[in-house]
């Protein structure tokens, strides 16, 4: 029993360390990326996995808390992509255009046509 707990603790510590590294990388991505959409890309992915893995690590080290921590993990996993998606759409519609090296933009058409419809009404 004791060895099992020790093993779980080491696995948990590994996850905590991994999570903190990803959280750091996510924040670095937010700081370094050239435009809003790329910041969202880096921020969402890295911080989601970072937070999930850190919380899971704590859950392994403290098995009594595991159920609640899994609720937190699920909530982060659902809510984080949703909020980044809402922010991306909102900023595109408010007129912030992404940074392009070579322009590939299928969305512009859709937003413009929607705007046209709104104005004609």
């Amino acid at each position: 029993m004791d060895t099992l707990n020790n093993i779980l603790e080491y696995i948990g510590l590994f996850f905590v360390l991994l999570g903190s590294i990803f959280l750091f990388l996510g924040a670095l991505g937010i700081y370094r990326m050239p435009d809003l959409y790329n910041r969202l890309q880096a921020g969402t992915k890295a911080s989601t996995l970072g937070a999930m893995s850190m919380v899971l690590g704590i859950g392994l080290m403290q098995p009594g808390w595991l159920i609640k921590l899994i609720v937190i993990i699920l909530f982060i996993g659902i809510s984080n992509p949703l909020s980044s998606h809402a922010l991306a759409r909102a900023s595109y519609k408010s007129g912030i255009r992404p940074f392009f090296k070579k322009k590939v933009d299928d969305y512009e058409e859709e937003v413009e046509s929607e705007k046209g419809k709104m104005e004609s009404v």
């Binding site: 959280l23 989601t48 937070a51 919380v55 900023s91």
Partner: peptide, 18 residues
């Protein structure tokens, strides 16, 4: 822009949760 600040705030709150 305001959206950039919102992203930073979102990331800060996720870091805060962890």
């Amino acid at each position: 822009t305001a959206a950039d600040r919102a992203i930073a705030l979102d990331t800060l709150s996720v870091i805060g949760i962890a």
